Simulated scan of single mutants.
Amino acid sequence: MSPSRWFEGQLKQIAALVLVSTVLLTADFVGLLSLVTGNAVNVGIRFPVYVLVMAVAFVVTIVGLARYDADGRTVLSAATGVAILALVVGMLAGEGIVYAYRAPEAVLNSILFYFIAAGLIATGLSFWTVNYWRDFTRAATADEADV
């Protein structure tokens, strides 16, 4: 494979990741707004779907991490964290989509561009965190060793 084709493939993957992440985070911000302002109605009816998303994330994480040489405690704590994050993100995104569907003028007229900008910034920060979190754990371990 030529370097230019590899680069094009990588660029498409990064663009897709940024697009999906930005849309998801924008929906999360709209969902948070709907919950805070009291515009989220009948959340209890949709809550079982959010719990199902959480359960799927839990199982996928356990199965995915089972391939690595991690101890059971690490796998369970990571799966629990991912499941809770999936519940929160799924619920906020779901409520954001419902709110945007029910009151599109409220979302489009005043806040959508701010949320898209915030979604893009959060995507960048998330990408940075995933790729550089080890630098902080190494720095913390080095600081503790100096003491």
Rank of each mutant, 00 (worst) to 15 (best):
A142N: 05
Y132V: 08
L112E: 04
G96M: 03
E144V: 06
T141A: 15
S126I: 09
A122F: 08
R102M: 07
L112R: 05
W128Q: 10
W128N: 08
A118E: 09
I116C: 06
A118L: 15
F113L: 08
Y99I: 10
G94M: 02
L112A: 11
G124M: 07
T137K: 03
E105D: 14
T123W: 14
Y114N: 11
E144M: 12
L112Q: 04
S126F: 08
V98S: 06
I111T: 09
L108P: 00
I121L: 13
V107G: 04
G124N: 03
A93W: 00
A139Q: 09
L112G: 01
A106Q: 01
L108Q: 00
R134Q: 15
T141R: 15
Y99M: 11
G124I: 08
E144P: 00
S110H: 03
L125G: 15
A118R: 09
Y99G: 04
E95R: 06
F115M: 11
N131A: 14
G124H: 11
G124P: 04
E144D: 08
D135W: 12
Y101G: 11
R102V: 02
W128K: 13
N109H: 05
W133I: 14
T129P: 00
A142L: 15
L125H: 00
E95N: 13
L108W: 02
F113M: 12
T123R: 02
S110K: 07
T123L: 02
A117K: 13
G119V: 10
I121H: 04
V98D: 10
A93Y: 01
N109I: 02
W133F: 14
W128V: 04
A140P: 03
